[in-house]
Design a protein around this nucleic acid. Sequence first.
DNA 1: CTGAAAGCGCTAACAG
DNA 2: CTGTTAGCGCTTTCAG
Lengths: 335, 335
Amino acid sequence: MSATIKDVARESGVNTSTVSRALNNQYGVNCQTRAHILSVAGRLNYRPNRVAQGLVTGRSHTLGLLVSDIRNPFFAEVARGAEDAARAAKCDVVLCNSDLDPEKQLRYIGSLLEKRVDGILMNSVAMLDREQQARLAGCGVPIVLLNRSAPNRAFSTVCSDNAAGGRIAAQYLLDLGHRNIAHLTGPRQHGNLGDRGRAFAQALKAANPPVHPVVLHGRFDFGGGWELTKRLLADHRGVTAIFAGNDFMACGAVRAILDRGLRIPGDISLIGFDDIQLSSVIHPPLTTIHQPKYEIGRAAVEILLRLAREDGDRAPEHRLLGVHLIERESCGPAS
Amino acid sequence: MSATIKDVARESGVNTSTVSRALNNQYGVNCQTRAHILSVAGRLNYRPNRVAQGLVTGRSHTLGLLVSDIRNPFFAEVARGAEDAARAAKCDVVLCNSDLDPEKQLRYIGSLLEKRVDGILMNSVAMLDREQQARLAGCGVPIVLLNRSAPNRAFSTVCSDNAAGGRIAAQYLLDLGHRNIAHLTGPRQHGNLGDRGRAFAQALKAANPPVHPVVLHGRFDFGGGWELTKRLLADHRGVTAIFAGNDFMACGAVRAILDRGLRIPGDISLIGFDDIQLSSVIHPPLTTIHQPKYEIGRAAVEILLRLAREDGDRAPEHRLLGVHLIERESCGPAS
DNA sequence: CTGAAAGCGCTAACAG
DNA sequence: CTGTTAGCGCTTTCAG
């Protein structure tokens, strides 16, 4: 249907190899020949067939992006950053939703490899066993892990500085005069949430006099934040400030606090983590730690592209991205 | 690096074509030969090269998904539906963000065509001129428009039933006894928002006695909803119910109403449209018209795949998907 | 600077 | 049931 390089060659009276050279504007083509070829190509509305090209060059100019669920606004933002960066490098990104199901994950990766993607971004390999991880690492294409800090030997990583975020939150609450503080977090040993919580607790402990937060573990979603806060409010009357492991939990907390007839920040100050869109829109607007989601995607693609370029050589890179405080209206001085 | 079909052929003492047949389990291969080939392939950890396969078959098993911005939760949901459906048909989807920029859009489409995608899902061609649209329609791959009802001659469409949604909202407010009603909507002649508003107004007019809503046009985002509502509250004291063109605007309205010291639904009832996640999470939880976003994506892929299968034959299909009321806590009886 | 020729990994007639 | 033979559309030596 559409014109091939052969058509262009025939039509402009040269060999296909010359057309190829002209089109990829490499050295060693006469200016006039090139101009002529280009005009013929234009007239024929020639479009290179990237799959043919990929077959011979071995580069597909395609990246795989494997996230648990694109509906998670965090990943949507990461995806946008990744896509923009990929686009700038003339790469496409194919989107995969794993739901963190290891089997699904493996199937996706297999499929991506068959398509000969130049690299893969994925958000976790935690649920893969040792052997699977080893196989993955040796699969031949570079892989970078999103939002993982554990300096995994085999993979590159891009992650925001969760520990710094925890410290910032602690200091902020301390500065406001809070001494009776709670921390709502996810299941024990959740990597990122863990880093946040540890650093938070440590910073509180370093205060003078030391502060020891009450910490509650639960689901790290809206419902989890809601339940945890209800329990907290019932069991620990004196608390004046809450640090939620992420903004979803914080939103749940807002609901629980309001439902109990308490005021934010009048009775209870609340600080979240992530800075999802929701946070600026709920009532009251949430003070939170901003995570550079877009930049995570962008940085990951940069690393991937560099790794792909260096081909055989694959020294994994680890990037830690800065976070910062977004002051809105959910925190106030301790009463 | 990785094993090719040739390796498998040599290793199992048959011809490549036999391997090909065995792997694609077509008829006409001896059971034992196939079993043997399969085992060899497994041992060699053979993975078919999809780009080579695509070159000869002319099918890439890849779909393009071109949305304005994946960070818009609406499109994230659509994307998930599309991806799931594509995956079920062993297709990948490549993600493109156009920001509704026509030039970007065209560049993306060009790139997708060069990659020989089997079909394209996109969310609007409104900003393309007649000639560009015509060229698009004749590009050789099927295209389906997301969330567009205008039965465009050239493209297939999948859209939720905006008019029905408008009617449902009107009837609901009417049934609650409201007679002094406002409608917040986007710029005039915005397709979907227009359908909603028209049907809404019409349903109100059909009431006995007829109701004539005050309708305000503005930006269709959070800020727009906020501004419009502020104006509304200042200029039209008697209003007891508001229908917002979408949930973002509704959220803005919530803020404006609360800021003015009014209560929802005590003083003002509020109904939105879309049923984004946000709506269930803000305070008060928003009553709204649910739009089947996931199904839009799924249906679009189904159509695309069918069109791709039928190859030359391309009768565009138009699908209208049902919407329904989600009753939460933002509407109450007229006082 | 340009042409000839080989080949990327796979499928698809067509024979046998 | 299986092997032979041609490509798919492009790039890339290697000569000229």
